[in-house]
Design a protein around this nucleic acid. Sequence first.
DNA 1: CTACTCCGTTACAATCGGTTACAATTTTTT
DNA 2: AAAAAATTGTAACCGATTGTAACGGAGTAG
Lengths: 249, 249
Amino acid sequence: MEASANSPTGHLLVVDDDREIRALLKRFLTRQGFRVTTAADGTEIEQILANWSIDLLILDLMLPGKDGMAICRELRAKSTLPIVMLTVMGEETDRIKGFEGGADDYVAKPFNPHELLARIRAVLRRTQLSPQPVSAGDGRVLIFGNWRLNLSLRRLQSKNGTLVDLSTSEFDLLAAFAERSQQVLSRDQLLDLTRGQVEMPFDRKIDMQVSRLRHKIEEDPKHPHLIKTVRGGGYVFTAKVERDEKPAA
Amino acid sequence: MEASANSPTGHLLVVDDDREIRALLKRFLTRQGFRVTTAADGTEIEQILANWSIDLLILDLMLPGKDGMAICRELRAKSTLPIVMLTVMGEETDRIKGFEGGADDYVAKPFNPHELLARIRAVLRRTQLSPQPVSAGDGRVLIFGNWRLNLSLRRLQSKNGTLVDLSTSEFDLLAAFAERSQQVLSRDQLLDLTRGQVEMPFDRKIDMQVSRLRHKIEEDPKHPHLIKTVRGGGYVFTAKVERDEKPAA
DNA sequence: CTACTCCGTTACAATCGGTTACAATTTTTT
DNA sequence: AAAAAATTGTAACCGATTGTAACGGAGTAG
C-alpha cells in the first residue's frame, strides 16, 4: 500500500518478450519493494529511459527484433545504466560471458527469483549505493563515489582524508583501469574504453593522461605503485578493487 | 538528524487553536519527515502561505474568529492548496461532508495520528501530480512543494530546513534538468527547453544561469554534485527524480 | 523617484587536454 | 660493447572550453 509512495529500493525496467515472465517479475519484484516498469521489446527502451529515471535494466538476451546483446552494447556505449541480462541456460552462457557484452551480471533462465533478486541487489550495491573502495596497497584507500554511474563523484578521497579532484577524462581513465584491475591494457584499448576512439598512430594522448593521473593518485609518481607500465604492452592497474560479489560461474 | 531521508518531504501548515494539538501534531508529523508550521488562528494563514511554500493545510473546523470552513472556501476559490479538515466527532461530520466545503479530506477529532498521517499522504499523492522530491543523494537538498501544480512557488527546501528562493528562470532551468535527469543536455537544448530560443553562437546565458543555480542549490558550488559539466557537451542533472505515473506496460 | 531584483553581456582567469619536443630508458642492431 | 632505434615520461605550450566577477539595462515595487 504505502510502499509505493516512497521507492527506497529503485526503479527497474524489465524487458522480456514473454508476457508471463514479465508478469511474474513485476509481481515478485514489486513485492520486494521495487518500482517495476516492463516492456515487451527493445523499441520502447529508449523512450522509457528518456522519460523515467531507471535504476537498473533487466534485459532478456533473446528478443524479437533487436537482439538483447546489441541493445546492451548500445546502452553501454552511451550510459552507465546497470544491466542484468537474462540468458538461457547452457553453453550459451559461457559464450556470452566470454563475449563480454558489458552487462553487469548474467542470470540463466530458468532462474530462481530470489537469486535474481540477490543479483539485482548486488549490482545496485556495486553500482550506486556503496562507494567502491580502491585500496592503494600502501595503506591509502581511494574511494569512489559510484564510479560506475560516472556522473557522481570525480573526487577521490585518500585514507588520510585528503581529497583529490580528477578531471572527467582522468576519472574515466581511472574507472577504466579500476574495472579491469590486473589486466594489461594497451593504449588502443584505453583510448577505446575512455572515449570510443580508435587508434591513431603515434598518439601520445594516453601517455599524457596516465602521466597526469599518476601525479594525482600516486604517492611517488616516479615510482608508481598503482598504474604500472608494461613496456611494449600498455599499462596495468595493480590496486585491489573491492567488489561485493562476483557473479558465480 | 532524523531518519526521514526517503520519506516524501512536504511542508504542512497546521492551524488549530488548541495549543496541545498543535504541539502534538508538530512533533508527530515532524518525526514523520514533514516540515511543520503551526498557527493558532486564521489571521496568519494568508501571511504564511504568501511566504512559505506550503504543500498541505491541516485546518481545524472550529476556530476563534474566522470559521475554518469559511477559510477553506476562500482558499479553495483562489488556489489548489490541498486541505485536510479536522472536525469534531459526531453527526456534524456527515453534515459537513455533505456540505462539500471543498476540503480534500476530513478527519474527526479525536483522531489517531497515524490515521491522519495516512490521510495526509493520500491527499498529497492525489494532488501532487508529478513534483516530487528531488533528492540530492547526499541526503541534503530536497525539493519541491508542487512545482508542477503551482508554478508561482519557486522555493526549494533543503533537508536542514533552509529555504532557497529561485528566480523564475532558475526554476525553469532546474525543472528542465529534473525532468531529464541523467541526460546530458547541450546548451542549445537547455535554451530551447527553458525559453524556446534557439542557438546563438557563443551564447553564455546558460553558463551563467547554471552558475547561479549551482550557487543556490549545490552544497559546494566548486564541486557540484547535482549539475555536472560535460566538457564539450553541456550539463547533466544527476540527482534521482522520483515520479509517480507509470508508462503503459 | 529610488531601490531592488533579475538576467544578459562582456571580460578575464582557470582548467582541460592535445601536440610537440626532448630527455631518459630499454631494446635491437651493428 | 657501442651505436642506433624504439619506447616511455613529462615539461612546455596552446587553443578550446568553462566559471564567474562585474557591469548595466529592464522591469517592478514602494
